[in-house]
Amino acid sequence: MIRAVGKPLEEIIGMVQNFDRILLAGCDGCVTVCEAGGLKETKVLGSALRLYFTQAGQNKVVDETTLTRQCDKEYLAQLGDRIDNYDAVVSLACGAGAQFMVDMYKHKVVFPGVDTCFIGVTEERGWYTERCQACGRCILADTGGICPIARCSKRMLNGPCGGSEGGKCEVSPEMPCGWQLIYDRLKTLGQLDRFEKPVDPKDWTSSRDGGIRKIMREDLRI
């Protein structure tokens, strides 16, 4: 899932301070799972903002809501009857959700309430790590199910750089070497021969480098 972290309160105050009626819109999707922009975080943010503005002697309305998802129109449309009651919205969804809200409510000021970080997993509660950079052309079949693009600091595709020490990346002793993980995994699977085959330079057109991406599934379109 997408992982995000809440923006610092001071940054959000800076964004909304010139607005009197503010709606905080959380999302029940990914940002709820990583506890950055769900119902609970939206309410906590609302309380913090109300406290700040009350103490600052500023009379503002700060309301909260959450939507099932902000990356689908039908849920965003649920704001239609009340969004005009507000001068600005802080979306606590990921960057995709916040931008989809902008698409639907073109005249409304929308601010991001979280920093969207990566596609990752929950190691433990509050500890998330990156697993995928959505390059659009998955190579996990050749790398033992461990992605060197997401997990090698240098994004190397033909084996390690030689800078790792004791299985840790040279960038940080806390960080496993992606290629050590791949090697160990292929060895376990008895597939080390895959490691020996050099790959061609990657085609990045399916990544962000081919321009703004879209998926068109004709089989799903009516």
């Binding site: 330079p201 990657k202 085609d203 990045w204 057109t205 990544s207 480098d209 081919g210 321009g211």
Partner: peptide, 13 residues
């Protein structure tokens, strides 16, 4: 110009 205009369109900008 964008990479896609050139002759190495698989490259990463």
């Amino acid at each position: 110009e964008d990479i896609s205009f050139g002759d190495h369109h698989k490259a990463r900008a």
